[in-house]
């Protein structure tokens, strides 16, 4: 019984002293999950290094016969790939920063004050997600055209950072709610202002949620095609999603380049995820406050 107890305890929260068997089991499960996550991505890699632009092949090898990096060379040097990446990156980084700042403060208001309209405000934020996004493209275009935002990144940055706000507020508000009020109160007793307490107590404690929100903003802007397609209509401005579209045809796509590019645009995201995982997990969470 005692052993069983500690086994479960270990399973549901941090553990020390796991049995080797359980450790192995966990690793096996995770390795299987990793294979499931990785395999389709590896197939994309296969297409990108297969000679002669073929999507299909009658073989299942990961590294096909005659594999080469021709598609990578062509996408990097014959196309404006770096320009597209750079454009996407600047837009995305600006968006994510603005989005996180806007959402973190708004969510604080939702979490700590019971002002009238708060409940309906939260429902309203949800409601904005309920209209299928493609339907809003026509009116957004018309508004953007009236404001002279077509063919500028200004329009895109504003639209993206606003577009992610509802999600961000909900997640952050939920997270702030788990932080005991007493922590702020004690800081305020020590002489901090309300915003000072927010800045010094709430924000550092919320790094996992802030990281999620940042990632979400980043991913949304990075992968967006619909909005960029109608807002940007000049070659110099194109983001990578629009750039990639140009190597696709109605019936005919240069699959090798398409897949090569897809893998390469995943790299910045993977790097970001890798570094942000530190924030997602450790840092100043409540758990470690305990020491």
């Amino acid at each position: 019984m005692q052993k069983k107890q500690s086994l479960y305890r270990w399973f549901f929260f941090r553990s020390r002293g796991d049995t080797p068997f359980i450790r192995t089991l966990i690793h096996i499960i995770l390795i299987f999950a990793c294979i499931a996550a990785l395999y389709p991505a590896l197939r994309v890699l296969t297409v990108s290094i297969r000679p002669g632009n073929r999507l299909f092949s009658t073989t299942l090898e990961i590294i096909p016969a005659g594999a080469n990096l021709e598609a990578y060379r062509r996408i990097l040097f014959d196309k404006d790939f770096f320009l597209w990446l750079w454009n996407s990156l600047t837009i995305t980084v600006a968006t994510s920063l603005i989005g996180v700042i806007l959402a973190s403060t708004s969510a604080y208001a939702f979490s700590r004050w019971r002002f009238p309209g708060r409940k309906s405000g939260l429902i309203f934020l949800l409601a904005t997600q309920m209209i299928p996004a493609p339907m809003l493209m026509v009116p957004i275009y018309i508004i953007a055209a009236k404001l002279g935002l077509i063919n500028t990144w200004r329009g895109l940055v504003i639209a993206y950072s606003v577009g992610a706000i509802p999600f961000s507020i909900w997640i952050l508000k939920g997270y702030y709610d788990t932080i005991p009020l007493e922590l702020e109160q004690s800081a305020m007793i020590d002489g901090a202002s309300r915003m000072g307490a927010f800045y010094r107590i709430i924000l550092p404690l919320s790094t996992p949620a802030l990281a999620i929100v940042f990632l979400f903003n980043f991913m949304m802007a990075w992968n967006d095609y619909l909005l960029a397609r109608i807002m940007l209509q000049k070659k110099d401005l194109l983001t990578w999603t629009l750039g990639l579209r140009s190597i696709q045809d109605q019936f005919h796509t240069q699959w090798d380049m398409f897949c090569a590019a897809a893998l390469m645009v995943s790299i910045p995201v993977m790097i970001l995820f890798f570094f942000s995982s530190k924030w997602l997990v450790s840092g100043l969470t409540l758990g470690s406050v305990k020491g």
């Binding site: 493209m137 026509v138 275009y141 018309i142 055209a145 009236k146 077509i150 397609r229 109608i230 209509q233 000049k234 070659k235 579209r245 140009s246 696709q248 109605q250």
Partner: peptide
């Protein structure tokens, strides 16, 4: 001349949208 490439269906949809806003190519 600003030349821009679009997918076949995208071109039709976007041309219609842009025309609606009085901003067509």
């Amino acid at each position: 001349i600003d030349v821009l490439q679009k997918g076949t269906e995208d071109l039709r949809e976007d041309f219609q949208t842009a025309s609606l806003a009085g901003d067509s190519p």
